[in-house]
C-alpha cells in the first residue's frame, strides 16, 4: 500500500509539470493576442516624478508646447528637464523673507508670500538641482516593425491627440501603461480607424 501511494505522488508530479507549463504558455499567448495588460510584477511601472497632466493643462498649456515633435516629427517626444526648470524655480521669490535663505527648496515649501506659484516637490527638485534629465519611462510605444508618424496623423490628418491618447486633462497621475481609448487589441486599433477613414490598410504602409 505504501508503495502504490508513493507511486501516485510521482504520477501527479509528472502530470502537474506539463499542466503548469501549459498554463503559463496559455497566459502568455492570451496576453499577446488580446493586448490586455496582464500583470507584470517584474516590471517597475512607477514614474520618477509625480507629474500631473491635469494640473498643467488647467493652465491652458498646449500638448505640442511640451511634446514638440508631435506636429513635425515621427515621435512626439517627452519634454527635457529644462522645460520644468523654467517654471519650477529653485531660487526663492524676490522680496520674500526667504530670499536670503540658502535652502531655497525648503523656503519654497514654506508657503504664503514665500512660495512660487509652482510648488516643487523634493523628488523633482533633486533632478533640477543636479541638472539631470528625468528618466521618464515611456509606455506608449509601437513595436519596432511598425512605422507610426505623429506628423502624418496630427498635422496632415488633423486628428486630436485625445482620439488616440484619451482625455489627458483628467489625468492627475503620471502615465504608467499604454492605453488606447477604443480598447481594441494590438493592430486593430490602427486598422479599425483606417478602414473607417478609408486610409490605406496595405500591410507595407505600416510594416517595414
Amino acid at each position: 500500500m505504501t508503495r502504490s501511494r508513493s507511486q501516485g505522488w510521482w504520477v501527479w508530479l509528472v502530470a502537474a509539470v506539463p499542466v503548469a507549463v501549459a498554463g503559463v504558455w496559455l497566459l502568455a499567448v492570451l496576453s499577446a493576442a488580446t493586448g490586455y495588460p496582464w500583470p507584470e510584477p517584474w516590471r517597475d511601472r512607477s514614474q520618477p516624478v509625480a507629474y500631473s497632466h491635469q494640473k498643467h493643462l488647467a493652465l491652458h498649456m498646449e500638448c505640442t508646447a511640451c511634446h514638440f515633435g508631435a506636429e513635425t516629427g515621427t515621435h512626439a517626444g517627452l519634454p527635457p528637464t529644462s522645460f520644468c526648470a523654467s517654471c519650477h524655480l529653485l531660487i526663492p521669490p524676490p522680496g520674500s523673507a526667504a530670499e536670503a535663505d540658502t535652502n531655497a527648496v525648503a523656503a519654497a515649501a514654506a508657503g504664503g508670500t514665500n512660495r512660487w506659484a509652482a510648488p516643487t516637490p523634493p523628488e523633482l527638485a533633486r533632478y533640477l538641482k543636479a541638472g539631470e534629465e528625468i528618466p521618464w519611462k515611456q509606455f506608449q510605444r509601437a513595436p519596432r516593425h511598425v512605422f507610426f508618424s505623429h506628423r502624418r496623423h496630427v498635422t496632415i490628418a488633423h486628428l486630436d491627440c485625445a482620439v488616440c491618447h484619451g482625455d489627458m486633462n483628467r489625468r492627475d497621475q503620471p502615465v504608467t501603461r499604454a492605453e488606447f481609448p477604443t480598447h481594441l487589441p494590438g493592430m486593430n486599433r490602427c486598422v479599425d480607424c483606417h478602414l473607417k477613414e478609408k486610409v490605406s490598410t496595405d500591410c507595407l504602409a505600416c510594416h517595414h
Binding site: 488647467a58 493652465l59 498646449e62 505640442t64 529644462s82 523654467s86 517654471c87
Partner: peptide, 18 residues
C-alpha cells in the same frame, strides 16, 4: 528652449500665470 510652455505655441499666449 521651451518658450512655448509659457508664451504658447507660435507665441499666441493664453497660458495662465497664477
Amino acid at each position: 528652449a521651451g518658450c512655448a510652455v509659457c508664451h504658447g505655441v507660435d507665441g499666441k499666449g493664453g497660458v495662465i500665470n497664477p
